[in-house]
C-alpha cells in the first residue's frame, strides 16, 4: 500500500550463512539488548498487547456500561480517562479499542502473509505465465491507494471489524507476494536448492521447507511494517466512521468522537496517545529488526 510507512525499506540483502533457528535468537538479542530504540518499542508494544488482548481481564469496566448521571466526567479515580457522551468509561473503551485494532491487524497481516507469500513463492518458483499473471495482478493492486481500496472494499463487504480485517488483508498481500517472489528468485539458483532437487525433493517441499525458511528475515520486517499499516488504516477507517460498528470502540472512532467536543481535551488526549504509542512502538521495532537483519547497515 502506497501510504505504508515508507521510512524503512526492508533489506533484501541478508546474511544467509546463519541458520534459521539461531537467526531468531540472534535477531532478538540484537533488537532487545543492543538497540535501545528497539527495546523501548518492544516494551511499549508488549504493554499495549497485554492491555489490548487482556482487556476483558484488565479493564476496570465493561466498555459498553453506561454510568447514568456521569456524562462527560473528567478523569478521576473512578474513571481514569474520564467518561464519554454516553457515560461510559473511556479507559476501558481505549483498551477494547486497542484490542480491536490488534485483532484486525493480526488477521489482516495473517491473510496478507499467507496469500501473498504463497502466490509470491509460486510465481517465483514456477516462472513463465503463472509468474506474469500473478505479478501483473500484484502490480495492479499496488497501484491502488491503500486506504481508498479499503474504502471501496468496505462498500462491498459492509461495515464491521471482520470486513475491515478482510479489506486490509486484501490490500496487504501484494507487498508480501512481491517480497516472497524476490526471495525465491534469489534463492532458487543457490546450491542448497539444487542439492535438494538432486535428492529428489518435491517442488512443494523445496518451496515451503527450504526456501521459505531462508526468505524469512525480510518477511519479518515486512510483517512488522504491515502491522503498523493495518493499525493505521483501521484507525483511519474508524475515524471516517466506516470501520467499526457502534457501540464497539475503535481508536479511530474515539478520536472522531473527540473532534465533536474539542472543549473536552481528555476525550482526545488518551485515545490519541494510545494510538500514537502503538504505532510508534511498531515502527521502532520494525526499524530495530531491520537493522539487526541488515549486515550492511552501519551501526549507529
Amino acid at each position: 500500500m502506497s501510504e505504508a510507512i515508507v521510512g524503512v525499506e526492508p533489506s533484501r540483502e541478508t546474511t544467509r550463512t546463519r541458520r534459521a533457528d539461531s537467526l531468531w535468537w540472534s535477531t532478538a538479542r540484537e533488537v532487545l539488548l543492543k538497540n535501545p530504540m528497539g527495546a523501548t518499542g518492544a516494551i511499549i508494544l508488549l504493554a499495549l498487547i497485554i492491555g489490548g488482548l487482556g482487556a476483558p481481564l484488565i479493564a476496570p469496566h465493561d466498555p459498553l456500561e453506561q454510568f447514568r448521571g456521569s456524562r462527560f466526567e473528567t478523569p478521576s479515580m473512578a474513571h481514569w480517562a474520564g467518561t464519554d457522551a454516553l457515560s461510559r468509561d473511556l479507559f476501558s473503551r481505549i483498551l477494547y479499542g486497542l484490542r480491536a485494532s490488534l485483532m484486525v491487524s493480526i488477521v489482516a497481516v495473517g491473510i496478507g502473509t499467507v496469500v501473498g507469500v504463497s502466490l509470491g513463492l509460486i510465481a517465483g518458483y514456477a516462472g513463465g505465465i503463472a509468474d506474469s499473471v500473478i505479478m501483473r495482478f500484484v502490480d495492479t493492486m499496488m497501484a491502488f491507494p491503500g486506504l481508498i481500496l479499503a474504502i471501496g472494499l468496505l462498500a462491498v463487504f459492509g461495515v464491521g471489524l471482520q470486513s475491515v480485517a478482510l479489506a486490509l488483508g486484501i490490500g496487504a498481500w501484494p507487498n508480501f507476494a512481491r517480497l516472497a517472489r524476490g526471495q525465491m528468485l534469489a534463492e532458487r539458483p543457490r546450491d542448497y536448492v539444487t542439492a535438494a532437487r538432486a535428492l529428489g525433493a518435491s517442488s512443494k517441499r523445496i518451496i515451503f521447507r527450504h526456501i521459505s525458511i531462508n526468505a524469512m528475515p525480510p518477511l519479518i520486517v515486512q510483517v512488522a511494517l504491515s502491522m503498523a499499516t493495518a493499525v493505521l488504516a483501521e484507525a483511519a477507517l474508524g475515524f471516517l466512521g466506516i470501520g467499526t460498528v457502534a457501540p464497539n470502540p475503535s481508536l479511530g472512532s474515539l478520536i472522531n468522537d473527540a473532534r465533536a467536543r474539542l472543549d473536552l481535551p481528555y476525550l482526545l488526549i488518551f485515545p490519541a496517545a494510545a494510538l500514537g504509542l502503538f504505532l510508534l512502538s511498531l515502527n521502532l521495532l520494525a526499524d530495530a529488526i531491520n537493522d539487526a537483519l541488515d549486515p550492511h547497515r552501519q551501526r549507529r
Binding site: L64, Q66, A85, L86, A246, P247
Partner: peptide
C-alpha cells in the same frame, strides 16, 4: 440512530 440505539441498548 447509532447513538440513540446505544441508549436504547442500555
Amino acid at each position: 440512530a447509532a447513538t440513540l440505539g446505544q441508549y436504547l441498548q442500555d
